[in-house]
């Protein structure tokens, strides 16, 4: 049987820019940084969740992606139609303030949701939409 989710992958327009965002603005740790030829596999994860990582896969023409596919995917990523994630926090307002101070741009400040959470929404440097979510205390 499946035990848990260990790795997921999101597309990013620029891996260096994304690494800077996830480590220095969100405070994530680097879990892997491997280069094989032209390909760089880099993954990051939240400090409190060592058994889960998110791969930052570069949107660039390669063996995997044609230029046309890169263009299509880039448009979808930029418009927030790919790569949604929900990140849990103990204090949404506090995290929102700390992240805003570091330059993270929010689409929506913390708001109480009808299903019992407080949630804010931000985008990463590529356009992937991320939800910052706090469970009701």
């Amino acid at each position: 049987m499946i035990n848990r989710l260990a790795v997921t992958v999101i597309w990013v327009k620029d891996q260096n820019e994304a690494l800077h965002f996830y480590t220095e603005k969100l405070g994530f740790e680097i879990r892997a940084d491997v280069t094989k030829g032209d390909y760089r596999w880099i993954s990051v994860g939240a400090k409190n969740q060592p058994d889960f990582e998110i791969g930052l896969s570069a949107l660039k023409p390669s063996m995997a992606l044609t230029e046309d596919e890169v263009q299509v995917l880039t448009k979808l990523v930029e418009s927030g139609k790919l790569g949604h994630c929900v990140w849990k926090t103990d204090d949404c307002q506090k995290a929102y303030e700390a992240m805003t101070a570091k330059g993270v741009e929010f689409m929506q400040p913390p708001q109480a949701r009808p299903y019992g959470t407080i949630e804010a929404i931000f985008k990463d440097t590529s356009g992937n939409i991320m939800v910052l979510s706090q469970d009701k205390r």
Partner: peptide, 11 residues
């Protein structure tokens, strides 16, 4: 940021 980086090469 790389305190917990894996030592083994894994993709």
């Amino acid at each position: 940021s790389s305190q917990t980086i894996r030592q083994s090469v894994y993709i």
